[in-house]
Design a protein around this nucleic acid. Sequence first.
DNA 1: GGTGGGCCTTGAGT
DNA 2: AACTCAAGGCCCA
Length: 316
Amino acid sequence: MSSAENTVSHFLPAGDYSLDATLSSGQVFRWRRREEAWEGVVGNRWVRLAQTRGGLHAEAMDGDGEWQWLIGFLQVEVDLKAVQGQWPDDPPLRAAAARWPGLRLLNQRPWECLASFILSSNKQIVQIHQMVDELCRRYGVPVRAPAGAGPAHAFPAAASLAACSEADLRACGLGFRAPYLRETARRVAQAEIDLDGLRRLPVQEARRRLEGLPGVGRKIADCVLLFALDFSEVFPVDVWVEKALRRWYFAGRQPTRRCLMQFAERHFGPQGGYAQQYLFHAARLGSDRSGNDWPAGGTANNELATAVSRGFPTVQ
DNA sequence: GGTGGGCCTTGAGT
DNA sequence: AACTCAAGGCCCA
């Protein structure tokens, strides 16, 4: 029992969980690192997380003693080695798994995930943080948190954002995304689309319905399918992942974007989403300011990785 | 029917 | 102080 500020503590065993890699890997946009811990809000609960020996230390406000809301979000019970065992055995994935042990996919609530990624278009991660924070501060329900703690608002309900004017949303810095978010919020609030119900559909149909929402194209639909709707095979291709694929799997060739998508779908398999997260992390963090590429000493690795895609047509 | 380019807002980084 | 660029979507040729 923590002595501070009426919080309760819980230990989540997980030998291979990297809080730093997971919470900073661009899946979620409102976690804040404070001292040696991470603070955020899951649903309507404030929580502080810290890496400890053999697992995670969680601290929340007094509750009913149930922690499933957090266990489910963090996916601590997923067997990471088993997931990686379903990957194809290729050098970039091997190297990424070795360099970022414990990088995990989270399981987000669909509405928050969808809304956040509508805001992500053509924005850097820090800017997405700012937009989401401002939306939560203005339109999110306050949640109980220790005095002076990090974010203390739930993510705004769809109905709350649907009730905003476009100008209200632009005031949060959304720019041209404001009307997209407003209209999508309206459709969700009025049950014109059932986000949770998409889980029961074939992936192509779920994707098609998401792409029918304004501000949602293939990339953002795929993020929601993977990060919130349990479609573990979905492989979102953004600019970073596209760079990674071209560099590490198609060195010296110029595949079309469509070709890359087909290769990814075929090559990475039923746990392709997890593979994508590692490649994304590697592409984004793996090259330093001097321009050195990753994996280090990459020539041999690149040749091996390129061999993986050898014979795969780069046109059509 | 698929592809490529311009445009859309904003602010952080340089 | 400009200027570029950023986990894209949309519209058009």
